[in-house]
């Protein structure tokens, strides 16, 4: 539900944990604003209207999705992973999942459906460029951005990663503010 801009009454009912009837009633009585699909009777509720409605009626917003950017952090160094989690959580605009191997990263990509993967190049099982290629070969995952962050600075290897489908590269150690800026830029692009 994270990226939905417009909801059906069924979806809105699910998000608000109410019956569809209640949603229809509220829509019809003007409590919940929306529009009808032209040439039909189907109701549609824009996200911001749904959110206003939920807030006005004190319905928890979780099910609507946060509106936050979903970030998957992949690094075999737990300290690095933890640092990213802290940094991103503190910012508040991000939802974070983590993986410490290439395999984990694959699983998480499927289930968590991140907007962006922050990928260390050197992983214990497979190298970052393999992860990149695997993601890029799946059309369902085409929208996912990949940001490589690594201690390696060999230009040749960086070029390889970019060719394998990475969107950008940032060298460790990094400036926190710049990393966050880069993440937002990549996701919005």
């Amino acid at each position: 539900m994270n990226h939905k801009k417009v909801f059906t009454t069924g979806e809105a009912a699910e998000v608000c944990n109410l019956s569809q009837q209640t949603i229809i009633r509220c829509f019809d009585n003007g409590q919940l604003l929306g529009f009808r699909v032209p040439g039909s009777k189907f109701r549609r509720i824009p996200r911001n209207e749904l959110m206003k409605f939920m807030k006005a009626n004190s319905i928890p917003l979780e099910a609507l999705g946060t509106g936050k950017t979903r970030v998957l952090v992949v690094d075999d160094d737990p300290e690095i992973v933890e640092l990213f989690v802290d940094v991103l959580k503190r910012d508040g605009r991000f939802e974070v999942a983590t993986a410490s191997t290439g395999y984990d990263a694959g699983v998480q990509t499927q289930s968590f459906r991140p907007d962006i993967v922050i990928l260390d190049y050197m992983l214990p099982d497979i190298n970052g460029n393999v992860v990149c290629r695997t993601i890029r070969e799946n059309p369902e995952l085409a929208e996912i951005r990949i940001l490589i962050i690594s201690g390696l600075i060999n230009q040749g290897e960086i070029d390889q990663l970019m060719a394998a489908g990475a969107n950008d590269f940032i060298k460790k150690p990094f400036n926190i503010a710049k990393v966050i800026e880069r993440i937002t830029q990549l996701v919005e692009a």
């Binding site: 300290e79 690095i80 640092l83 940094v87 503190r90 201690g151 460790k172 150690p173 990094f174 926190i176």
Partner: peptide, 21 residues
């Protein structure tokens, strides 16, 4: 140096990152 770059840059990233936080 190539080996060191990887090994040293990870903890440096942690130090630098934590310090910034």
């Amino acid at each position: 140096a190539a080996g060191a770059a990887h090994e040293i840059n990870n903890p440096l990233a942690v130090i630098a990152g934590r310090a910034q936080l």
